[in-house]
């Protein structure tokens, strides 16, 4: 197998910066949360890429196989995904409350309303 090199990391950085860009540029709060989620998945891929071992298999012990990928990042990211959806839901709930208070989920409109 040819080496993957550093390509995974570069794509991770592209995704990370797309997420950050959405968070900075978009004034819509739901779009911002989508951007944060993209940032989050890029970190997931970074961890899983670090744990990859060339020629290894999924870390489920089978007779006759000695090389496994690193299970520790899998554990960390597995829990992080589920925690991530729970915290995303919390963020969306705050957006819903902002909408019922200001009748808008656009940052700039909220600023002008609250003046």
């Amino acid at each position: 197998m040819t080496t993957i090199g550093l390509f995974n990391y570069w794509i991770v950085f592209v995704l990370m910066m797309s997420g950050l860009y959405i968070v900075i540029v978009s004034t819509n709060l739901i779009k911002k949360i989508i951007g944060l989620n993209i940032f989050q998945t890029s970190v997931f891929i970074l961890y899983i890429s670090i744990g990859k071992v060339s020629g290894g298999t999924a870390p489920i012990l089978v007779d006759g196989i000695t090389l496994y990928s690193n299970p520790l990042p899998h554990v960390l990211i597995l829990t992080a995904i589920v925690v991530g959806v729970a915290t995303t839901a919390l963020g969306l709930a705050i957006v819903v409350r902002i909408h019922s208070a200001f009748n808008s989920i656009d940052e700039e409109e909220i600023y002008t309303t609250s003046d």
């Binding site: 489920i60 597995l78 829990t79 995904i81 589920v82």
Partner: peptide, 12 residues
């Protein structure tokens, strides 16, 4: 315990 899976996956 034996294949891919566990509490988090089953829960979701």
């Amino acid at each position: 315990d034996y294949g891919p899976g566990g509490g988090f996956q089953a829960g979701v």
